[in-house]
């Protein structure tokens, strides 16, 4: 066997703070900073897929009870708890503001694939869908709402009517939401959800914490920006991207033509 390499994943190029933050979010060995606690029941309410503390609805019997045709692979991969129980597959959908968001759609996809198991996700420009088995989803939601990747002002649960990521912010600095699922409570200084992600009015409003202060917003911003970390100065990243474009063209023309000098 060839001599073993000392391989350490790069994860992402660049030495600036934003590149470093991207590296950290997408490396599951590095923990996400926790900002707030949200009760499990509140998460269930916000998701609006089942009633609080009701049993999970099943789409099929628990795996142990299904007789499936023989397939050794099914015994290798460890199913998630929700899959094992036969839970329905349900979703959460986030919209992230264009203006200094702590995470953005492709950032989510990479984070989901690095940190969660059994995920179905679709990246859009303003929103990102995450589908999982229901109990797995609730668990993931906790991480998604409680940590540094959720700024109650700039990230929002929007199951439907997702429009607004790119709009200017409202007078309280909150991302636009045509269904006004959340409002800024000026007395408590918190962003409060008065509707669930599908826009149904909640019996009890759920506070998700105060908007992050401006310096924190800048620190946690995941996108390069002209007034924080100017994108055009990211030489390493641009080297990767321009090289990748060239190699793809060459590989498409003749895959054998790529060599180590390129």
């Amino acid at each position: 066997m060839a001599e073993k390499s000392e391989y350490v994943p790069n994860v992402y190029p660049g030495k600036d703070e934003i590149s470093e933050r991207r590296r950290r979010l997408w490396d599951k060995n590095r923990s996400l900073l926790k900002y707030r606690n949200i009760a499990e029941d509140d998460i269930t309410e916000l998701l609006s897929h089942r009633s609080v503390r009701s049993a999970y609805v099943s789409v099929h019997p628990p795996l142990e009870e299904i007789i499936e045709p023989y397939d050794p692979i099914k015994h290798i991969v460890v199913p998630t708890a929700g899959a094992r129980a036969g839970d329905r597959i349900r979703f959460i959908q986030f919209s992230d503001s264009f203006h200094k968001p702590p995470i953005a759609p492709f950032g989510r996809a990479r984070l989901y694939l690095a940190r969660f198991r059994g995920v179905d996700t679709v990246v859009y420009s303003g929103r990102e869908l995450l589908e999982m088995r229901e109990r797995d989803l609730e668990k993931a939601t906790k991480t998604l709402l409680e940590t540094e990747i959720f700024n109650p002002a700039l990230d929002a649960l929007k199951g439907i009517t997702v429009h607004g990521h790119s709009l200017r912010l409202d007078e309280d600095g909150l991302m636009f939401d045509a269904r006004r699922r959340y409002i800024y409570d000026r007395e408590t200084g918190q962003v409060v959800y008065i509707k669930d992600q599908m826009g149904n009015v909640l019996d009890n409003p759920i506070p998700l914490g105060p908007p992050m202060p401006e310096d924190e917003v800048k620190k946690l911003c995941i996108t390069y920006s002209w007034d924080t970390q100017p994108y055009k100065a990211r030489t390493e990243l641009f080297e990767v991207m321009t090289r990748a474009a060239k190699l793809r063209v060459m590989g498409g023309f003749n895959p054998e033509s790529i060599n180590e000098k390129m």
Binding site: S125, I222, L237, G252
Partner: peptide, 26 residues
Amino acid sequence: YAMKEGWLRTGWAGQEIQDHLGLPYL
């Protein structure tokens, strides 16, 4: 590449479909 990595988003459900395919196809 450039737009996607700068903002970590492109367009309507990954509007870069044609751009990823476009480069090897070029």
